[in-house]
């Protein structure tokens, strides 16, 4: 009798353990993610924030100097130039990519022959690394051997296209190279959006007698809102990240004419050994992203909610 009772208790314990194991499995599986989120993402951001408020140079210092580094940052010529460059670059890059990508998508959408080939051609640069494409463009834009020289050899001896060595125009060359690389991405996203539009909308518009360009502008483009938003976010994150192309094309030059914040931060972290200043810069970058992307994400999640509740 007593043995039987003990056995029963043991069985119950075993069942409880099994239940516990089953319940805990998902948590165990999510452990790597939890670690990475808490340490890799949250932890590092907070750490950088802390470093940015210390007086660390080559080695971390554990003091607190408030916003001194930020003040120093905004007194730094190089940083200000970087910011200005990035703003100019960002506006031009995003607008050009969206416009060109939209045009490409619309033109490809006209039931053209060889659509597959064209799409492949427009998107292939995106498959390459920014370093590789940056190097190619450096070669193309190099006034001594590149396009300028080629056109001069064709007989236009006065032709000038030396933007890459021109302090005032070097940022435009980076815009050209990266737009070449990324506008295919916009095309792919928008084309997918275009193809998702109900064929009957087009028919209705034809019956209403609306010219094709007007349908694209007044009906299709507003309907592509989410796709445009997606493309914008992708392009915007690429702007903030801008580093590889600059390193490959100009290394920040001539002078500091094509310096960008990401490069400023990397240089101060590793070359110039000013960890605190670099961290302050990175936090500013994060702040910019947050301010620009957060409203978009909020609108996105609200739209998703609305859809879900319908």
């Amino acid at each position: 009798m007593r043995a039987k009772l003990r056995l029963l208790r043991l069985l119950r314990l075993l069942r409880l353990l099994r239940l516990l194991r089953r319940k805990s499995m998902p948590y165990a599986a999510l452990l790597p993610m939890a670690l990475i989120v808490l340490v890799g993402y949250l932890g590092t951001v907070l750490w950088s924030l802390k470093v940015s408020m210390s007086s660390s140079r080559t080695f971390p210092a554990h003091d607190f100097v408030g916003l001194t580094q930020y003040a120093r940052l905004f007194g730094n010529e190089r940083w200000l130039q970087s910011l200005e460059n990035l703003a100019l670059y960002g506006v031009l890059f995003i607008v050009a990519c969206l416009v060109i990508g939209f045009l490409l998508a619309v033109f490809i959408d006209q039931k053209v022959a060889g659509e597959g080939v064209l799409r492949t051609v427009f998107l292939y640069p995106y498959a390459m690394s920014f370093v590789a494409t940056g190097l190619v463009w450096q070669w193309l834009l190099n006034p001594g051997n590149g396009i300028q020289q080629a056109v001069r050899l064709w007989g236009y001896a006065d032709f000038e296209f030396d933007w890459i060595v021109d302090q005032d125009k070097v940022m435009y060359t980076i815009v050209i190279a990266t737009v070449w690389q990324a506008s295919g991405l916009v095309m792919a996203i928008l084309l997918a959006g275009l193809r998702g539009i109900d064929e009957e909308i087009w028919k209705a518009a034809r019956i209403d007698g609306i010219p094709t360009w007007r349908v694209y502008l007044s009906i299709v483009l507003p309907m592509l809102g989410p796709s445009v938003g997606t493309a914008f976010v992708l392009l915007f994150t690429a702007v903030v990240k801008l580093f590889d192309s600059v390193v490959a094309m100009t290394q920040g030059g001539p002078g500091i004419a094509s310096e960008v914040p990401a490069k400023f931060i990397m240089d101060h972290l590793f070359g110039r050994a000013n960890i605190a200043l670099a961290s302050a810069g990175s936090i500013m970058l994060l702040l910019t992203v947050t301010i620009l992307v957060a409203p978009f994400m909020y609108a996105r999640s609200r739209a998703a909610h609305r859809k879900a509740s319908q």
């Binding site: 009957e200 909308i201 028919k203 209705a204 518009a205 034809r206 019956i207």
Partner: peptide, 18 residues
């Protein structure tokens, strides 16, 4: 189509969503 003096109603309504 616009010159045929017709109006048409579609299965999916095809309203301009925006």
């Amino acid at each position: 189509p616009a010159d045929r003096r017709i109006g048409m109603v579609f299965q999916s309504y095809a309203l301009y969503p925006t």
